[in-house]
């Protein structure tokens, strides 16, 4: 995530001034931040600003945004985007939390192996991973063959190019982010806190709900926002597995860009996505970090 990098820039500026006022050469001198500063300016700040400018055409400034939020079709796409991201996030949480809990509390020396298994798929291209699902669920793929062989179905089911497949693909790709976020926080929750709750009469479920869960809320929030924002930005999965059934903003941007070449409209949609991401970050920083336990 590149947003936090904006902070060190301000500090770097100050450091440069100070070192100019007679300070000896030092490794933390702001001068060293200059390449990063130039890089960020050239490839992050300026493009973002340019994008905002592009989305506001001179003749009718808010034309694209007006269409996006009034036209029923585009409103539907915005809604679809939020829905897909929300469902994926919840599914990742439900799948990821137990994995994290197991890793932290029970895996012991297997922990590093599980972390490796989680990260390994991330090293494969997302296109490869997504096509993998197509192969598995194709008309003559492994899953259909097995179900046919077990006499559970009579003829091959159409499983690719469905909404379901999009979720499967998204969850597969994004669960590791959830698991790693929650694990890092759960590791800081002392097991003796859970034992304290139990000796005070709390059942396993109650212990979880009143102690473990509230203490890991920070990791849950980080994971949820990460998955939500990443889903918002995914279009390959929708493109390759959705078969046109799931249209989200990012997919639309891709299409606007490659097919209709309506770059101004694509820029406006991109900015809406950016806004979603910023809202998510704000919620986390404002309301959750403060309550969280260090």
């Amino acid at each position: 995530m590149s947003q936090p990098a904006a902070l060190p820039i301000a500090e770097a500026g100050e450091a440069t001034l100070r070192s100019r006022s007679g300070r000896p050469f030092q490794i933390s001198s702001g001068l060293w931040a200059l390449p990063a500063l130039i890089f960020l300016m050239a490839f992050f700040i300026i493009p973002l600003a340019a994008n905002i400018a592009r989305s506001l055409p001179a003749e009718d400034m808010f034309r694209f945004y007006a269409v996006l939020f009034t036209d029923p079709y585009y409103l539907g796409v915005v809604w679809q985007t939020v829905k897909v991201s929300a469902i994926t996030t919840v599914a990742c949480l439900l799948i990821g939390y137990p994995v994290s809990y197991f890793m932290v509390r029970f895996a012991g020396r297997w922990n590093s192996l599980i972390v490796f298994l989680l990260i390994a798929p991330l090293l494969t291209s997302i296109i490869m991973r997504t096509f993998g699902w197509t192969v598995l669920f194709a008309r003559k793929g492994l899953v259909n063959t097995m179900l046919l062989g077990a006499d559970l179905i009579e003829k091959p089911e159409n499983m690719v190019n469905t909404e379901m497949m999009v979720y499967v693909g998204l969850i597969h790709v994004l669960v590791p982010f959830m698991v790693l976020s929650i694990t890092s926080v759960l590791q800081g929750v002392n097991p003796s806190l859970e034992e304290s709750a139990q000796i005070l009469g709390a059942s396993k479920l109650r212990t979880f709900l009143t102690v473990t869960f509230p203490l890991s809320i920070d990791g849950i929030a980080t994971g949820c926002i990460l998955v939500f924002v990443l889903t918002n930005g995914s279009f390959l999965t929708m493109l390759l597995l959705g078969g046109g059934k799931v249209t989200t903003l990012s997919l639309l941007i891709y299409q606007q860009f490659t097919l209709t070449q309506n770059i101004g409209f694509a820029a406006a949609m991109g900015n809406v996505l950016l806004l979603f991401a910023l809202i998510g970050m704000t919620i986390q920083l404002r309301f959750l970090r403060r309550k969280g336990v260090k």
């Binding site: 002392n190 806190l193 034992e195 000796i199 059942s203 212990t207 102690v211 336990v293």
Partner: peptide, 17 residues
């Protein structure tokens, strides 16, 4: 949780939240 005991842990284990 069904033994009706009390326990004080070495690190106190107070609920920080």
């Amino acid at each position: 949780n069904r033994r009706g005991l009390g326990m004080v842990f070495q690190n106190y284990s107070l609920f920080p939240h």
